[in-house]
Computed example of a mutant assay.
Amino acid sequence: MQVQGIVTCLYFVLMFPADIIGLWWAVGSPLVMDSNSICKKTKRLAGRQRTICKREPEIVAEVAKGAKLALLECKFQFRNRRWNCSTARRSINRILRRNIRESAFVYASTAAGVVYTVTQACSLGTLPKCTCDHNARDVSTDGEWEWGGCGDNVDYGYRKSREFMDARKRKRRGDFTTKIQLHNNEAGRTGVKNFMRRECKCHGLSGSCTLKTCWKKMPPFREVGNRLKERFDGAIRVIISNDGKNIIPEGLTIKPPSRHDLVYSDPSPDFCKKNKKVGSLGTRGRECEPDSMGVGGCDLLCCNRGYSRTSVTMKENCKCRFLWCCEVICETCVSTKILNKCL
């Protein structure tokens, strides 16, 4: 199978033993590689990754798609934050080398994205080793509907995400950073798997619903992103237990993190000023909302440095009308937009 669409993200998985660091930041790079190039240096991969690379190139393609999906969602969720999920290489590499809230979200959303794209590909019939999920049909119904259709096989997507994303880390599972990253990977996967919904279709003459069949379907990925963003806001700071086997809350009064919670151990920088050491690009030049008191407002986003106002003239087609046959005539409308940017 041709695996175009796999980008430099996987190149850096091969070239750098920093695991998913390269997988994430290079997703948007214009360089496209085929499966043969990706798998050329399999000795640098963990055992299970090497096996998938050699035997299931179609899964590798979905891993890349999942990382890209997660990148887009990350940018959406943090579009108005001081850290806006920038994929600038020097920034994201620094972010992912530290156990902060932001890296927790990146790891979790990437693992969730891989679950999502692999499961989706399975339902579309593009993965030869995966079929629809029929396990739900063993669950009793209320008699008003019955199981049918092609259910999303999220168990398969979950398993492949776990095999590929956790493979290298599991060799060093005693390491504190490894424990944090594996935990956040799992939190991302459960954000998809544990929120499957039932979708139904009616059958019958003249639109009647004499028979209704239902199947299990994944939630929209935007819902997954929203849920992970809530967990980011409520992330739990952890330390290693005395026996070195578990991660535990830093404070005695804080509840232990569940499988769904995001965890971190280091405080985040404020991201107000550019700081290469911590991966902060600063907020200078970012657009803001002067009338907003929340995130995205000029006071918070600009870190109380103030902002500039610039008037921009824009021209666009308007009042278009169709002339028979076959021409569209438009007028040119001029509008003015005010841009507010952080100083």
Results as ranks from 00 to 15, higher is better:
Met1Gln: 07
Ile6Tyr: 05
Thr8Ser: 11
Tyr11Asn: 08
Val13Asn: 09
Trp24Ala: 13
Trp25Asn: 02
Val27Pro: 00
Val32Asp: 13
Val32Ile: 14
Asn36Ser: 14
Arg44Trp: 03
Ala46Leu: 09
Arg48Trp: 00
Ile52Cys: 08
Ile52Ala: 08
Glu56Phe: 10
Glu56Trp: 08
Pro57Gly: 06
Glu58Gln: 12
Val60Asp: 00
Phe78Ala: 07
Ala88Pro: 00
Arg89Gln: 05
Phe105Asn: 00
Tyr107Ile: 06
Tyr107Arg: 10
Ser109Asp: 03
Ser109Leu: 15
Ala112Pro: 03
Ala112Arg: 05
Ala112Trp: 05
Ala121Ser: 15
Glu144Thr: 14
Glu146Asn: 08
Glu146Gly: 07
Gly148Thr: 10
Cys150Met: 09
Asn153Ala: 04
Tyr158Asn: 09
Glu163Asp: 14
Ala167Tyr: 04
Ala167Gln: 04
Arg168Met: 12
Lys171His: 09
Thr178Ser: 13
Lys179Pro: 01
Ile180Arg: 01
Leu182Glu: 04
Val192Gly: 09
Phe195Ile: 06
Cys200Thr: 10
Lys201Gln: 14
His203Asp: 06
Gly207Arg: 03
Thr210Cys: 01
Cys214Lys: 11
Met218Asn: 07
Phe221Pro: 03
Glu223Val: 05
Val224Phe: 07
Asn226Tyr: 06
Leu228Cys: 04
Lys229Ile: 10
Arg231Ala: 07
Asp233Gly: 04
Asp243Val: 01
Ile248Pro: 00
Thr253His: 10
Ile254Asp: 15
Ile254Phe: 11
Ser258Asn: 13
His260Cys: 03
His260Ala: 11
Asp261Val: 09
Asp266Gly: 00
Pro267Leu: 08
Lys274Ile: 07
Lys276Ala: 13
Gly279Ile: 05
Ser292Phe: 05
Gly297Met: 12
Asn304Gln: 14
Arg305Ala: 11
Ser308Val: 04
Arg309Asp: 09
Arg309His: 12
Val312Ala: 05
Val312Gln: 09
Cys320Ala: 14
Glu327Gln: 13
Thr332Cys: 00
Ser335Asp: 03
Thr336Gln: 12
Lys341Phe: 01
